[in-house]
Amino acid sequence: MDEKAASLLKKFSEAGSLAWAEVREISSQTGVQERSLEDQALSQGIIPLRYHRNIGTISVSEQQVLLNSKVVVIGCGGLGGNVLEQLARLGIGTIIGWDFDAFEEHNINRQILSDISLLGKSKVEAAESRLKAINPAVCFQAVKSRFDMEQARTVLPGCKTVIDALDNARDRLKLSSACRELGIPLVHGAVEGWVGQLTTQFPGDTVIEEIYRQNYENGRILSTPAFTPALVASLQVAETVKILLGRGELLRNRIMLINLLDMDMETIELCTDD
């Protein structure tokens, strides 16, 4: 631990909180990265102001776990944009966003990272500037390509959780086998119209294959409003936080089906005693 940084952290936080401007100030005086300073602060029991309202839902040491976690979001559209936004606000320290695509006008009805000025611009680059604006302490890495197995083997290792925010079954099946091979938990979410679906797959499980094994064809144009991906993304983020912290009951061996037209959520319990 940098001693000068530690004493400055102590001095600045005497008033009871540590503001971002103070983190910046200490960083410029000591050359220590903002994220390391937040990490140091948390180990001294000092809560950076931006995380104040997280505490209670999670503990100070759990906040530190989040800050030291690395999570990958595959797909930065309707689900992925909302997921990325929340991960940065929560203070997940390293976030990778993976998407090959650029924004089109028909994305604007639901994709929170998109706006008129960004039409034609890369989704991962939009994610990068959005996340930097929300939480500059977060390290964001952009992967601008289609999801593929080879690259997954270099990008995914070291990640604590992978979030499936893809938009087609074929890539989901590839992602599922990549996570199985690399031993990483996968939080799956999918949406269409008023309907959402969610499950968590751990290495060794095969729920994604069970869902999409019917040779699912995805050629039609999907209708998706703003509210369905925002909801499912929130549930995926909650599930991710629970995996990172080892808390709560996960959707492992359960498929949650959400129908917003009827306002109901149900889970199908999967049988595992084979």
Partner: peptide, 10 residues
């Protein structure tokens, strides 16, 4: 018996 059409959008 539970029957559902899976969705794949994102």
């Amino acid at each position: 018996l539970a029957i559902f059409p899976p969705v794949a959008g994102g």
